[in-house]
Design a binder for these strands. Sequence first.
DNA 1: GTAATTATGTTGGATATCCAACACAAGAAT
DNA 2: ATTCTTGTGTTGGATATCCAACATAATTAC
Lengths: 184, 184
Amino acid sequence: MDQVKTDPRIIRTRKLIMDTFIDLSGKKEFKDITVKDITTEAMINRATFYYHFEDIYDLLDKVLSEVLLVNLKSEVYEKEEINEQSLTSIFKAITNFQMSLSNRCHRGYEDTIARIIRDQLEVLLYKMLLKQHQVKEDESLKVAAVMLSWGIYGASVEWRRNSQDATPEEYIKSAIPYILKGIE
Amino acid sequence: MDQVKTDPRIIRTRKLIMDTFIDLSGKKEFKDITVKDITTEAMINRATFYYHFEDIYDLLDKVLSEVLLVNLKSEVYEKEEINEQSLTSIFKAITNFQMSLSNRCHRGYEDTIARIIRDQLEVLLYKMLLKQHQVKEDESLKVAAVMLSWGIYGASVEWRRNSQDATPEEYIKSAIPYILKGIE
DNA sequence: GTAATTATGTTGGATATCCAACACAAGAAT
DNA sequence: ATTCTTGTGTTGGATATCCAACATAATTAC
């Protein structure tokens, strides 16, 4: 209701910075990208960068969150329940997202990326759980969301490490019933 | 020497507007493009548009001039003399430019476009003539540039109308000696 | 090692851009 | 004819962005 419109310059500038960063990260590794590189390419002042982001890690964080959010199409899932189908879709989205990242050579930032993924997952799963149980907030559901997010993320790691001969769906299928029993 | 740097925001904003305009003019006819269309798409305020351009015709003027300038690679030609080779290249550039325009359906603006082309040509040719005759300025050379620009432009119109079975080079080749005799 | 260069953040004052509002014109809808 | 809508240009005050300068850390060069 009381949402104050954000200044269009802010939207435009953030988009410029983020797009430029994504663009650059396709050309060189994250560790070789400087703030100056980004601002020069994006045609904005360096001071303006710091007006929007704490530092380059903050930018990485926000860019990845946004990309992941698109992958998760969360506006769709938020309205759904947690069941075999939605869980499988989410798992697919996560593995998909990680595969797209591994092409971009963000070596040394696996921890950061992992945290971002789990954070986003957790928020999404918590919303779905709340909806499913018809409550406004609930601490135990929050913890459940934490555990589910770690579980899904961990499964995606293990899948990448061991089982890429199976599809993500196949890999996770047999485990899902046990998970679902816990939260129903 | 005393060139004052233009504010980066100006460069960025003008580029945004011009690129958006070029983009839109590939999707609909010029007469259907409004200032609001452009500013919305470019994510800038309408008032900002008027800070940079008098109106949409002024924008058309500047966009076409710039595109044409690139076609003419004038920074190259400015240093050359007017001879068979450079005249042919320029003629090719003009016909090329007009062909690319005709795909974009600017029906009803042929006069505007013609004026822009001749203006740019005239400036370029005048510079080349000055260089060739080793003077700083000269009224009769200016008039010569006017006539040459009209001549080249007219030839390009006639070529488009009648002789597209000949290449631009072939079309203009036999006439060039007569032109060159006049200015040498 | 140490000098020289390059990147990071921060600040105060200058400038481009935004917003809301206005008057006006042109076309479409009823 | 008359609303109604949509686009054009313009203005004054608010805000994001720029610039120049600075201190500091990190890298590179010698």
